[in-house]
C-alpha cells in the first residue's frame, strides 16, 4: 500500500516539470534565471554561439541522460525585453534539426518601455601590441642611441666640405681695416661711420689695456692719452661737429690706425 502512494507522490511532483515546458517564465532583463531538470527529447543539445545581436544568453550548466532523451539544467539571461522561445537558442550537438523540440516560452520584462533603449554596439577590439613592454624599451633605447648620430650627420651635411673647423672670430683689426679703407675711399655711410667710431674706441681700449674699465672710465682715460685724445678729437669733429672749423684730412686722420693694424698683421 505504501509503494503505490510513493509512485503517486512521485507522479505529482514530476508533473509540474513536464507542464513547465509550455509555461511562460518571466524574469527581468539582465538577471540570470535557471531551469533545473528540464527533459527535452532527441539527441544532446548545446547553446547556439552568441551573435552580436543575440537577445538571450543561454548556458547549459548540466546535462544528464534521461532514457532516449536528456535532462538539462539551464541558466539564461535576457538582454532585451519581450517574449522569446528558449529552444530557438539551442542546437543539436550532432548537427541534426531541432524540429522536435517543444516551445519553451520565456519573457523578459524591462524597466524601460520596449525599444526605448538598445544596448551599445560593443567597441571593436584593438589589435594586440607588437612585442610588448620589453620590445618597446629596446626600440626606445636604439632611437636614443641613434639620435646623436643623426644630429652629427645632419650637422656635417650643413658644413661645406673642407670647412669643418670652428669659425675664427673676427679680430678688431679685421673689422677696422675695411671700415678705414671705405672711409678713405669716401664710400662709408652713416652706419659705417658709427661702426668705425665704436671700433676706434675699442682700438684705443685695447691698445691702452683698458679692458677691465667701464667704457665711461676707459674713455676718460683715453682722453688723457696725448695721441689718442688728439686723434679722437679730430675724428669727433669730423663726425659730430655741426660745422667743422678746419677741413678734415681723412688720410692724415686714419693713417695711424691703418699702419698700426698693418704692423699687427705683419707680426702675425
Amino acid at each position: 500500500m505504501k509503494i503505490p502512494l510513493f509512485f503517486v507522490a512521485a507522479i505529482i511532483t514530476a508533473a509540474p516539470q513536464v507542464q513547465a515546458v509550455n509555461e511562460t517564465r518571466a524574469s527581468p532583463v539582465g538577471l540570470y534565471s535557471q531551469i533545473f531538470d528540464l527533459i527535452l527529447p532527441g539527441s544532446a543539445l548545446e547553446p547556439k554561439p552568441i551573435q552580436q545581436d543575440t537577445e538571450i544568453i543561454v548556458r547549459i550548466t548540466a546535462t544528464r541522460p534521461h532514457g532516449s532523451s536528456f535532462r538539462y539544467d539551464l541558466s539564461y539571461c535576457g538582454l532585451e525585453a519581450g517574449d522569446f522561445n528558449l529552444c530557438n537558442y539551442l542546437q543539436r550537438k550532432d548537427g541534426t534539426t531541432t524540429d522536435g523540440l517543444p516551445t519553451l516560452p520565456v519573457r523578459f520584462d524591462g524597466t524601460l518601455p520596449v525599444d526605448r533603449l538598445r544596448p551599445n554596439q560593443p567597441a571593436p577590439g584593438q589589435l594586440p601590441k607588437v612585442g610588448g613592454y620589453r620590445t618597446l624599451l629596446i626600440a626606445a633605447g636604439i632611437i636614443w642611441g641613434l639620435c646623436p648620430l643623426v644630429l652629427l650627420l645632419l650637422n656635417r651635411k650643413k658644413n661645406p666640405q673642407g670647412n669643418t673647423g670652428p669659425l675664427q672670430p673676427q679680430t678688431l683689426a679685421d673689422r677696422l681695416y675695411p671700415l678705414l679703407q671705405a672711409a678713405r675711399d669716401g664710400t662709408l655711410d652713416t652706419t659705417g661711420q658709427a661702426e668705425l667710431e665704436r671700433s676706434l674706441l675699442g682700438f684705443w681700449r685695447e691698445r691702452l689695456d683698458l679692458h677691465c674699465e667701464s667704457p665711461a672710465t676707459a674713455l676718460a682715460k683715453i682722453r688723457k692719452h696725448k695721441d689718442a685724445a688728439m686723434l679722437l678729437e679730430q675724428f669727433e669733429r669730423w663726425l659730430h661737429h655741426p660745422n667743422p672749423q678746419s677741413p678734415v684730412d681723412l688720410n692724415t686722420l686714419l693713417d695711424p690706425y691703418r699702419s698700426a693694424i698693418e704692423n699687427t698683421h705683419d707680426k702675425d
Binding site: T190, T191, Q193, A194, E197, R198, L239, H240, H241, P242
Partner: peptide, 13 residues
C-alpha cells in the same frame, strides 16, 4: 646742441 646722424646711430644701436 647739435646731434649728429652718427650719434643717433650710436643711441639706436
Amino acid at each position: 646742441i647739435h646731434i649728429s646722424e652718427v650719434f643717433i646711430k650710436h643711441v639706436v644701436e
